[in-house]
Nucleic acid binder design. Structure first.
Lengths: 194, 194
DNA sequence: CGTTTGCTTGAATTCTGTCAAAGCAGGTGG
DNA sequence: CCACCTGCTTTGACAGAATTCAAGCAAACG
């Protein structure tokens, strides 16, 4: 179960983990299984832990005052679950994090994550690398949102994350793109013609 | 000139800087003045340095294949200039960073920034805090882009950054919101009625 | 086998962009 | 000091794009 996490840390940090470090890491995380439709976080909760996805899939979304859902992020294997804002500021989250498949997680609390960063250099480097990657990905997404048409955003998504349409229902992909399911359906019909 | 930076680091890190540390920091940064309409970065450049804004204002934007500009970010005093993606991956930037006012910057290279993080703990903590804040702000912006109408995004912006409309022309605010200047003008007219 | 869930399609409506024109500063040079 | 630019905002008319509402259909699920 922990092998996927060790491999992830070694790849991201560029360092090898000693057996001792592996033991420390195992002590700070704990395993958690969630089935499809179960929640890791619900709106109003304070996000006091984050989780590494060993196997499975999830979505993070909000519900607006008209009752519509808006998917901010998906998560697949080797991605992380958690609401940055709530986690860092200890404010109630505006988001839900729901499993879309039966999922295996490795969970760590805020406090343990900080301790681990102080004691295991490879983990600190990993988090730094994640932060960078996240900054890049979110900047791209903002750029896409303000500068591309819905159709361009869709083809861009297909190039960047072709897995998404295979593992997530189309109406959720539409929600992620910020368009209605009907619009996405029509766009795909047009795109197939060309 | 450096006082604003020292104060910023001390506030963000929660640590006091020794005189020695202040000297080290001064040695790694250098001062640069840019006038209105001058560029800190142009499309195609690799972003090998970032800059702390001591005084002034700037915008970061791209130009699409129709020749339209799209503003991804603004920067004011105590904010930073730089393209995360180009800076971290050393790829050519898709963005321009242009001064909107005469601006004083403190510039640091990639290499020096890494060294400084290793030697001055307060600086490392500051960068970590910045990364967190950036992650929160960008997540909010993505959420706004996919879940709000143009009008909701506008009022949200006015609440979060009321300075923007005072220091930036309205057509740039429109570009930042991802709408046309005409639409923003009409929205403001409607909002004034209520 | 019935129910739920997701996908598609059509028609009406609302929103937004585009194009064009006009007005309104602030700044510059004569 | 005035006339003229130039950059920015406003307004109107029109076209195009996306949402909404409604209906029908297929596949998956319990």
């Amino acid at each position: 179960m922990y092998d996927a996490l060790f491999e992830y840390i070694e790849t991201r940090s560029g360092l090898r983990l000693t057996e001792e470090e592996q033991t420390v890491i195992e002590g700070k995380f704990h395993h958690k299984s969630l089935r499809r439709k179960q929640y890791f976080l619900q709106e109003g909760d304070i996000c006091k832990q984050i989780a590494f996805v060993v196997k499975g899939a999830a979505r993070m979304y909000s519900i607006d005052n008209k009752g519509h859902e808006h998917i901010v992020r998906f998560a697949l294997e080797t991605w992380w679950l958690g609401d940055h804002e709530s986690f860092n500021l200890l404010t109630p989250s505006r988001f839900h994090i729901e499993m879309l498949e039966d999922t295996d997680l490795l969970v760590i609390t805020t406090v343990n994550a900080h301790e681990l960063r102080d004691h295991v250099k490879a983990f600190d480097l990993t988090i730094k690398a994640m932060d960078k990657q996240l900054a890049i990905a979110t900047q791209k997404r903002i750029h896409a949102a303000i500068s591309m048409t819905a159709e361009e955003r869709y083809t861009d998504l297909m190039n960047t994350y072709p897995q998404f349409l295979q593992r997530f229902p189309q109406n959720m992909v539409a929600s992620y793109l910020g368009i209605s399911p009907e619009t996405l359906s029509r766009m795909r019909k047009n795109a197939a013609r060309n």
